[in-house]
């Protein structure tokens, strides 16, 4: 039976400053099944990273605050846990890898020490066993000279190697959920192919679920089972990966898919989405995408559409798909 590992319900994360409140994540609900890869796509500022930081409750030292909703992971609401209880979840049951492997590794500690830290804390292993586990993990992620690398510092490694170390660290406690926030964006294409290949292998050999956050539709198409498209803090479309690329419903999703140049496809002009993402101060009252949408109707400017099912396992936040349904 497929069961839900993580369920996010009506999540609201706001950034509060003296003169304004920015709704970075606005009423976001989704779930991840066991051993499933869910992708969140969207452009900068759409709230995809803040969603993942909210799940990990890593917004403590930012102006960001989770003001509503529930995050249910293995039958407990993560938002009700104390900081101490949360620490037992982080890095243990939920692990995370970040975009920039240089800034997410501590530059003054050796690789070995950084990987062992989590292993000793969560798996309660002694020093020697933790070291053996760290070595095993480095070999698993395909690092050559793993034994020597344990005693090296992050600056001595290349970008691709550092990301492998991050993955080794994240997988070392066998997490149930791995959150990968743009894991290959900072890497070159041939190195990206290596890392994606590695993540696919790890997924095959464990039943870890992955939450893959990216702006790259190519990565989504190759890695994910289901996809959520976010725009200006909201989910605008949700579908299985095949359905999303074959039958995109929301004009924003269509625009995104059509605006990327495709290899071997010689079009003179690319479709593009006119205008820019609205700034939080100028958030449109109706549909947030209305000012850039080429199918905009009167209704879109005044009333905000809800996320509604258009088919089984496919939902979309657009008045257009509701009109079609009523016809």
């Amino acid at each position: 039976m497929v069961s839900k590992l993580l369920e996010v319900t009506d999540l609201e994360t706001h950034f509060i400053s003296d003169d304004a409140t920015v709704k970075a994540v606005d009423n976001v609900s989704f779930y991840i099944n066991n051993a499933e890869t869910l992708g969140i796509v969207g452009e900068s500022g759409c709230g995809k990273s803040v969603t993942s930081l909210s799940i990990m409750r890593l917004l403590k030292n930012t102006p960001g605050k989770i003001v509503g909703g529930e995050i249910t992971f293995l039958d407990q609401n993560l938002l009700n846990l104390s900081e101490k209880e949360m620490r037992a979840v982080r890095g243990n049951q939920i692990a995370m890898i970040f975009q920039e492997p240089m800034t997410s590794l501590n530059p003054v500690y050796k690789i070995g020490r950084q990987i062992e830290e989590g292993i000793r804390l969560h798996l309660k292993l002694d020093k020697a066993a933790a070291k053996a586990r760290a070595l095993e993990m480095l070999e698993l992620v395909g690092i050559p000279r793993a034994k020597d690398i344990l005693n090296e510092y992050p600056y001595q490694l290349s970008g691709g190697m550092r990301q492998r170390v991050m993955i080794a660290m994240a997988m070392s406690c066998v997490p149930k959920l791995l959150i990968a926030d743009e894991p290959t964006t900072a890497l070159d294409v041939t190195i990206q192919a290596q890392i994606l290949d590695l993540m696919r292998d790890l997924r095959k050999n464990s039943d870890t679920s992955i939450l893959m956050i990216t702006h790259d539709l190519g990565v989504v198409a190759e890695m994910c089972d289901r996809v959520i498209v976010m725009y200006a803090g909201q989910i605008v479309e949700e579908a299985s990966v095949l359905e999303l690329f074959e039958n995109p419903q929301h004009p924003y999703t269509k625009g995104l898919i059509n605006s990327i140049p495709k290899l071997g496809n010689y079009t003179e002009r690319l479709d593009s989405i006119p205008g820019n993402v609205p700034t939080p101060e100028n958030m449109p009252t109706g549909c947030r995408f209305a000012p850039r949408c080429s199918f905009v109707m009167k209704q879109c400017l005044s009333e905000a559409p809800m996320l509604k099912g258009v088919q089984e396992n496919h939902s979309c936040r657009c008045w257009l798909s509701e009109v079609e349904k009523n016809d």
Partner: peptide
């Protein structure tokens, strides 16, 4: 050839033969 094959294709139906280069530049 490797560079071209390494690019993720935004089409979930395409299953590419991928040449994965070993090591770093």
């Amino acid at each position: 050839q490797a560079l071209l094959s390494a690019i993720p294709v935004p089409n979930p139906k395409v299953k590419k033969e991928r040449i994965i280069l070993k090591g770093d530049i």
